[in-house]
Nucleic acid binder design. Structure first.
Lengths: 104, 104
DNA sequence: CCGATAACTCTACACATGTAGCGATAATCG
DNA sequence: CGATTATCGCTACATGTGTAGAGTTATCGG
């Protein structure tokens, strides 16, 4: 059965980092430093978010001797979701017994 | 003053590895495993040998996400030198008091 | 033969991406 | 509510190149 987990704190950190400047392309190494996640946690997260259509991805060729960079950016859907998250954060006060992430 | 050191055992190992199949292009990571040298020892050696004209180098583009490979191969001069080394190894028996590497 | 020092090797680190596999967590259904 | 199990996060490893800096070695001039 398909399950819909609510975004983990790690995912939220990544999305916020990307949302800070939504038009800018970011790459893993960079984001990992900012958000304090190791490659083994971060890359799977990025791939999953991209699979769900929340991120779009490209490659930046990269100078000889250094690997090409995999670039990511929020899609419209991704931005929406960040907004949603913020709304929920505000709504977290009232004792509406736990409501979670609802698929769009 | 410029000095002429005789090839270190590490350098000899690298040159022999390359001499095993002189027409084949090899790259650092690969050679490092074969010859058991870490990058920090190997790359400077390769660069120095290339500077002296004993190796020739190219780049192999490399798939996205992985760095381009820096390829190396012995030049004619390089092969010569390997031969020279072998000769000296044979000549090492007689007590000719230490003769070293003579510039071509 | 000896001392100055060029030349060298090695340990760390930085850059960059990604996978395998294990254990934790949480959504869904009975 | 409680068990099942999809989904997730994390550690470790693999691939690859290269530099900085510390310390070592050995060549050459005297």
């Amino acid at each position: 059965m398909k399950r819909n987990r609510s975004p983990s704190p790690q995912v939220v950190r990544v999305m916020h980092a990307l949302a800070a400047e939504p038009s800018r392309w970011r790459y893993g190494y960079d984001l990992g430093a900012e958000v304090d996640l190791k490659s083994g946690s971060l890359y799977p997260i990025l791939v999953r978010l991209a699979d769900r259509g929340l991120l779009e991805a490209t490659w930046e060729p990269g100078p000889p001797g250094k690997p090409a960079r995999h670039l990511y950016r929020l899609t419209a859907a991704g931005l929406d979701q960040v907004a949603q998250l913020a709304t929920e954060a505000v709504a977290q006060r009232p004792p509406v017994p736990h409501r979670r992430w609802k698929e769009a």
